[in-house]
Design a protein around this nucleic acid. Structure first.
Lengths: 213, 213, 213, 213
DNA sequence: AATGAATGAGTATTCATTCAT
DNA sequence: TATGAATGAATACTCATTCAT
């Protein structure tokens, strides 16, 4: 029963120099963990690749796993930002359902496509703390509420429980995209994959489906 | 660049005693990795819990990761068997689409519910070899073909590309179930989750949806 | 506030082979710490000198400090044994006070003379846990009781509080011997040192002194 | 065989400000080493507690051990000053032997009582250089000469070898006080301890004892 | 003179794996 | 076949010390 390790950054880099150091370290970490996987990615390698001494690394990150967490956080933040952007765009003016879905799926797809291997390491090898997932969950729940409002208000959409629908929407996209990224099926092009996903969700949400519920 | 490690079992246990030893080891491994995660699960602990010496463990498994692989394989085999069963049942007589989907989703759900924590370790921490996933992919592809035949033949189903639809079906269920298992959303009961998943897939596949495609 | 480290031996060596390993390690430790001091005495060096792998060392000793503790314990045990022997000898037949004192001082002196440098490391550099000193204290107290009985019964001795006298006796000898060992004053031969110590204690304890108390 | 490290202070603080810095550092060092022991007392902690940057610390002390040495020196100087005072007092007018002894013992006792834990660290953990002890020895020898003169001249004292007697006197007090400080025996009050020590030494030195030598 | 970010050599420790018994 | 003592390469991490600012 090991006490939970400290994973949060050690000190906030305030001066310009330290900020540079920190981002060099993160960049190095991303590259090293990409190439070498979780186990093979040693802190020494990370420091070396970042052009920084191990000591500096540990000045800002209390241990190896904190590096992974920071990377995962960075990724999550990007995702959140993207969704946030989408949501606020659509709050102003909701486009046709299909357009909305396509944009949503495409954005998440692009996000994951950027560094698929880092992704694999982050989510299939790294022992990310449950706190990370809880935070992610919470954030996703928050977005779900936003999405459910959009769905509830959308003329093309019909569903009994918009909150549930929103949750399914988010989860489905995440699940499918993850699956596609990690093992891209040769037979299905990204375009087809996205189109089909959008189609499925459209069917799920659209009014014409109502009669079947 | 580490040479690819040997991961397949060292010798097939033929005698009754060895078979017992092997399954004791696997059982011990399952328990230990559950409790301690990938990194914390040492071969010593596994052997101890299995009531066996480390030496014996290495007699049957060439290294630590082979244990994880065996566990993952065991899980996958169960899944395959389950799907195989379903498919052969339905080949004889195809029930209503909804019934088919419900059974499919429920079975996968149950399978994952059995040892969720082991699951997490297996698929989020363990460095399973890509071979494992390739094999899994291949098997899934194989099943997809079976499923696509069913879909193509089913009167309630309408889709342009049954193979694609089958693939989406499998991936969607896997993705959603994984998500649900790892972070069960408090607000959604298993029943509702399954029902909604079935609903979504039904909408996706059913003839009445055709007009929208 | 670090949690107190585990210092007790990891497993009792039961088989003959392991017993040999353990004593080789202790012997190596004694030599290495002698030569190199506490900080300079690395576990690697100890293992190497013991002709054993580091892993084996850690099989029996949970960390570096446990090695020092074991060495200190060994030393203390020898001292205890010696005193115990002396006490039981004298319980049978008490010799003249001077003889008793001389023997006592000489024994402790010899004990410390055996490995003076190891001693220095043990008691001037090593962070021995307070438990060690408490145990030592307790043992010494126990002996003090034995000594005080002898004193109380001895015809040549006169003191109001034999327990106190016994304590002073033990402490004085220890203090003087330590001092002599660590910085042997060139001007004073061991013989003279011992004689003088005995003389002081004799004066302190003997009846003829009583009138002055 | 590490080259002997530089341990003497780097520069004599001449200005008022620097003097303040230096004493702040020493004070911080005393506190930190008290709380954390030798190994746990890092230069960073010392600097922080002194309200000074590490850089400044190293401006005045070439390395960690120099801090310890300075602390030990400070302590020793106080002791020397105390003894020196005593000696010059008594050179003017020698009081009764018992008074002299009591004062001597009490002074050393008080000196050690001031920061017992720092003491423990200094003399049981810190790797003080042998030079320190040699210097201490030398100084003590010097005092021994002074003491031996007093003893030789004192009417109550009778001893063949005043130099030896003086040495024993100093060593005994040091040894006993150290022992008492590090592990204060619950059963013996400081007053009793001092009284008994004085008594022992009195017996050792006084004329009436002569007949027994 | 002061600062504190950066350094990196140095070490304790682990744990997968082997092999003599 | 089973055992578990022995192995030792591999690594995370610390902390005394430096030096650019």
């Amino acid at each position: 029963m090991p006490l939970k390790k400290q994973l949060s950054p050690r000190k906030q880099p305030t001066q310009a120099r330290s900020r540079a150091t920190v981002s060099a370290i993160l960049e190095g970490a991303a590259q090293v963990f990409c190439r070498e996987g979780y186990a093979g990615g040693t802190t020494d390698k990370v420091a070396k690749r970042a052009g920084v001494s191990v000591g500096s690394l540990y000045q800002y990150f209390p241990n190896k796993d904190a590096l992974l967490l920071a990377l995962a956080d960075r990724h999550a933040e990007e995702g959140f930002a993207m969704i946030h952007l989408l949501l606020s765009e659509f709050k102003a003016e909701m486009p046709r359902l299909e357009v909305f879905l396509r944009q949503f799926v495409q954005s998440l797809f692009d996000l994951h496509m950027r560094e698929p291997e880092l992704h694999r390491v982050l989510f299939n090898e790294a022992p990310l703390p449950s706190e990370f997932f809880e935070k992610k969950e919470a954030k996703e729940h928050e977005f779900s509420i936003g999405v459910s409002r959009l769905l509830a208000a959308h003329p093309e959409v019909s569903c009994k429980d918009p909150a549930l629908a929103a949750h399914m929407l988010v989860q489905t996209v995440e699940g499918l995209v993850h699956g596609y990224i990690f093992f891209p099926p040769r037979a299905i092009s990204p375009e087809n994959f996205i189109t089909e996903t959008v189609f499925m969700l459209h069917q799920y949400l659209s009014r014409s489906a109502e009669t079947l519920g």
